[in-house]
Every structure is written in C-alpha cells, then in structure tokens.
Amino acid sequence: MVQYPMTATGAAALRRELEQLKNVTRPEIVAAIAEAREHGDLKENAEYHAAREQQGFCEGRLQDIEAKLSNAQIIDISKIANNGKVIFGSTVTIVNVDTDDEVTYKIVGDDEADIKLNLISVSSPIARGLIGKMVDDEISIKTPGGTIDYEIINVQYIA
C-alpha cells in the first residue's frame, strides 16, 4: 500500500473538494445528462456526450481523491518539536549563495504543491535536496540552468 504524505491543510482541502464533487458537481452532471437525453437522438447529441465526458472526469477525480485520502499519511508539523532539521511539512528559507536572493518554501505533498504559493512537492529536486539538512547547511541543487548553491537560513514547523 502506497502512503501519500500530506499536510493537515492539504488533507482538509482534498476533503472539501471531495464534498464539492459529491454534493454539487455530480448532481449537476446527472441533471445535465437527463436534460440532454430529453433532446432525443443520443448519437448526434453533443450536449449529452459532453455531459457524459464530464461525468467520467468527475468520477475519476472522486476515485483519485478517495484513494489518496484512504492512504494518506497526515503529518501535522506544528505538533513536532523544531530541531532545525528540514522535514516534510517544514517551511524553509534559503538564500542563493551567489546572488543573495532569498526564498521561502513549504515542503508539501504532491497534490498540495503550487509554486506560485511557494508550496513545493516533497518529490521536487529542491525539496529532495533540502530534506534531512539543518539550518546553516549549504546545499547544491541541480536545476535546468545548472547547479545552484543555497544556504538554509531558517526552518520553521508551522501548520
């Protein structure tokens, strides 16, 4: 059985999406299919075929979310004592050794990752390079543009 590491926030977001799909989206699709059926010949009924396709996507996403939640390993970082070590769920501030550019990332599960919000997947190259390191450690991360050296300047365990 594959365990999906997930923050408590990420698990809550998946539960909200699941409820939305079950209680709002699915009934809307069923109603759209019923309405399209009333239009007659299903072979050339674009609305019917679009609704059926939407239903397939919805059901697939429902199964995906249910599987992930049933195999979720929910990690509440705020309940772990901070020893300065980078672990799943931690918020890490790093500085580029060459440019002094500073950036803060939170290491989260694959479904929660959103680079625009500085949420990086635990399986991303940056996160893999950070996990297990400590404050003041220097790391080298291979990027498409070459290897970049960073120093870890802060590690927080915040939810």
Rank of each mutant, 00 (worst) to 15 (best):
I115Y: 13
I74P: 03
I33H: 04
E53R: 02
V103L: 05
L42E: 11
K106S: 12
I115V: 14
E47N: 10
G60L: 11
T99A: 07
N71R: 12
I80M: 09
L42T: 14
V86N: 00
A67L: 14
R37Q: 03
Q63V: 12
A81C: 06
A32D: 14
I115P: 05
V103S: 02
T93L: 03
Y105H: 15
S90Q: 09
I77T: 13
E53V: 00
I115G: 07
R37F: 02
S70I: 01
G60N: 15
H39L: 11
S90L: 01
E38Q: 04
N83C: 03
D64Q: 13
G56S: 05
D100P: 01
V92A: 00
I107G: 04
E38C: 03
Q73P: 02
K68V: 15
L69M: 11
N71S: 14
E112M: 09
I87C: 00
V92E: 00
E44Y: 11
A36S: 03
G84S: 04
I33W: 08
V92Y: 02
D98C: 08
E35A: 15
D100I: 02
H39R: 06
E44G: 10
E44C: 03
A113M: 03
A50V: 01
E44K: 09
V108I: 14
R37D: 02
N96A: 04
K106N: 12
D110T: 06
A31R: 08
I115H: 13
T93K: 05
N83D: 14
Y48F: 15
D110F: 08
K68G: 11
H49F: 10
Y105K: 10
V86F: 01
E102P: 13
